[in-house]
């Protein structure tokens, strides 16, 4: 009989192995989709650290994703940096921004925290529009194929795109898994369950939250930067309120506070919208219905239900 901890590791390892193997079987269309899904799922993993594990509901994570996206995108388009440097710049931008916003927003809690994060993200979105000269606003800009080469490998190529997205997802998932199984992660869960009690056990709750916001913001920025480099498009829509709502939606759907939930929610939502946008232009209707349904009937999400019913050992 395996220990619960080992089962947990094997289950997540299995998922990664499956995703790796998948690229050899998928038809081209879904091949591209999966690359996109894994990048956005990494963003959702970053979001989940804050929302699912620590219990802080941010409505402004798009600003961190966009910080990575624009940080690396502008580093290439405006300053001609190489892909590697651009990636570092993107993550650094998200890291700094999350530290600043975290320090301010953590003075509030509950509904006020949501609105403060929403407002900062909105200010970020408007800033992108204001500097339209460089960002080209809503229309966005495209990074040339020639500029998206890492160590001699073109990132716009199908195979390397999938592999890069997979690598990013591996890093995010393993980081998240290691974190939530660590002492630090257990304190985060304690904060989510009962903040006052955690404080009165001698933990500096604000410090833990602050570190988590930076970590969450940096992972989101890493995903954003990777998105820009792999898909070569940088546009203001990624900084809009929608892109703050999406990770919430994916995480809620897949299961907040589960490591694999963000991926499950992302795949589900992606194909739901993909299928319905073939039928109607009002495909966001699906997102709306799903949100209401989740709030009312399944606040635990898919993997949350799986954990509470079947695999109780799942992280």
């Amino acid at each position: 009989m395996m220990s619960d901890s080992k089962k947990d590791c094997f289950a997540h390892g299995g998922v990664l192995l499956f995703l790796f193997a998948l690229q050899f079987f998928l038809p081209a269309y879904h091949h591209g989709n999966m690359a996109r899904i894994m990048v956005l799922a990494s963003y959702a993993i970053g979001y989940n650290l804050l929302f699912g594990y620590t219990g802080l509901l941010s409505l402004g994570h798009a600003i961190f994703f966009a910080a990575g996206l624009y940080g690396s995108g502008l580093a290439i388009s405006q300053f001609g940096f190489s892909v590697g440097v651009a990636l570092v710049i993107g993550v650094a931008a998200g890291c700094v921004l999350s530290a600043v916003i975290g320090a301010l927003a953590l003075r509030t809690e509950g509904v006020a925290f949501m609105i403060v994060t929403l407002m900062f993200a909105q200010a970020g979105y408007l800033t992108v529009l204001y500097f339209g000269e460089f960002t080209r606003g809503d229309e966005g800009f495209v990074l040339a194929h020639a500029d998206r080469v890492l160590w001699g490998v073109s990132l716009s190529d199908q195979t390397s795109k999938y592999f890069s997205a997979f690598s990013l997802f591996c890093v995010s998932l393993i980081m998240c898994l290691a974190l939530v199984r660590s002492r630090f992660g257990k304190v985060l869960i304690a904060i989510r369950e009962n903040e006052e009690r955690t404080q009165m056990l001698g933990y500096n709750v604000v410090w833990y939250k602050f570190c988590t916001i930076i970590l969450s913001g940096s992972i989101s920025a890493l995903a954003g930067a990777t998105y820009a480099l792999l898909f070569g498009y940088v546009g203001a829509s990624f900084a809009s309120v929608e892109y703050s709502i999406y990770p919430l939606l994916w995480v809620l759907l897949g299961g907040a506070g589960t490591v694999i939930g963000p991926l499950v929610g992302m795949i589900f939502m992606f194909y739901l919208i993909d299928l319905s946008s073939g039928v109607t232009t009002a495909y966001m209707l699906v997102a709306g219905v799903v949100l209401v349904f989740l709030a009312v009937f399944a606040p635990q999400g898919v993997m949350g239900e799986v954990r509470s019913r079947i695999w109780k050992w799942l992280s």
């Binding site: 369950e193 009165m200 001698g202 709750v205």
Partner: peptide, 22 residues
């Protein structure tokens, strides 16, 4: 409060405050 507790104060709540789901 968290610093006082690190210093060696233990505190139990008047209204039970535990981690109910854990």
């Amino acid at each position: 409060s968290h610093k006082r507790i690190v210093q060696g104060m233990g505190y139990t709540f008047q209204i039970t405050s535990i981690f109910e789901t854990l």
